[in-house]
Design a binder for these strands. Structure first.
Lengths: 196, 196
DNA sequence: TTAATCACATACCGATCGGTATTTATTACT
DNA sequence: AGTAATAAATACCGATCGGTATGTGATTAA
């Protein structure tokens, strides 16, 4: 691990907990044990560091889910893989300040366009991914053809992000657990074709 | 409207858009046209101002919903009143920076315990309110007795907050609309007793 | 009429902000 | 061994931060 990676490793959770404006250069030098000279030798400025820290947080919290979905066969199985991944999401991110996409979306919308756009794109990718899973399921006769893929993708992602937020607010993973159970037993169940 | 109210009126949307640390005293003096002397004559410090600004944001965005629910008769009607209120929520808060409960929860958790606790209590009140609506519905024979009130309250609130966030991220009120339709036609519908 | 009070403005405080120029130590190459 | 390149430390910059002490003009009460 080189110095840049070391800095990101130490700093990424801080950015996610305290936000972009809430994290100062002295927070960063304290956490790394390095000086400002070292920081600015490895990153062009604070925004550059924040952006790469966000990418690291995403690669730890969300990218594994995308990879898991990619290697899972079948639309219904992909959906179950998502809810299953989310069940352990609270433990995964609780010490890092919760869901990075959520944090940056709220934090950066009105004062860091570049950072916000990155989070926005990630959210779009998530929505589109869900939509395509459902559409593919319809094409492959796994999912009823009368299911609205876009609508249901929006509903499911809303539940994922909302339950993540509320578990985070109340230190209660049951918001996620209950919501994922609901997605499994009610939403995904309603996707299934009636057996003849 | 006295000076304190005038300041809060001007400053509350800024706090909600930029967050607590993201809003400086000069932002405040610029927005109000007043000087620091006037601000500190009306509020003891920045945290005091932020807390009261949060309360104002809540009183404009969320309190009306609580009042609407209070004057609505019947558990199912109360639930429909909530989803109906949410349908116009995006327009209600879009210029003010989104849902204040969501904003402060994310923003204040690790650097402003007092502010965070206020948001946390509000969220608890919301969860408890939903739970009691469902419980009352069961007692009054409006809702099936096998419905888990706490679980469903958590699920519904997750959907409300999550869809609000995503509409806010994508400037697309349809996240809220689709999710509220889903709550109406699937969740609340499943609460209803089967007609004999 | 004058003294006290009040609300806000002005002027100032030390601390910290993000960022940079310079110096120093280490490594790599010839 | 000597030199160039690199990486981090040091020292410093102006601007801004939240907060306060003092000044001032209007209002009120005696």
């Amino acid at each position: 691990m080189n110095t840049s990676e070391y800095i990101l490793d130490k700093v990424a959770p801080i950015f996610n907990r305290q936000g972009y404006v809430g994290t100062s250069l002295s927070d960063i030098t304290n956490a790394t044990g390095l000086t400002k000279g070292a920081i600015y030798c490895n990153f062009s400025n604070k925004e550059d560091l924040a952006l790469k820290a966000f990418r690291l947080n995403v690669s730890l919290a969300i990218t594994p889910l995308f990879k898991l979905v990619a290697v899972t066969e079948g639309s219904l199985n992909k959906l179950y893989a998502i809810t299953n991944y989310q069940r352990s999401y609270y433990d995964l991110v609780k010490d890092r300040g919760g869901c990075p996409m959520l944090r940056v979306s709220v934090d950066a919308k009105f004062n860091n366009p570049l950072l916000f756009e990155t989070a926005q794109n990630l959210s779009s990718k998530f929505t589109l991914g869900l939509t395509n899973i459902i559409k593919d399921g319809i094409l492959n006769n796994e999912i009823r053809p009368d299911i609205d893929a876009v609508k249901n993708a929006k509903i499911i992602l809303s539940q994922i992000e909302g339950s993540s937020l509320l578990s985070f607010i109340h230190n209660d993973p049951d918001f996620i657990i209950s919501t994922m159970d609901f997605i499994d037993f009610t939403i995904i169940e309603s996707f299934k074709k009636v057996k003849i």
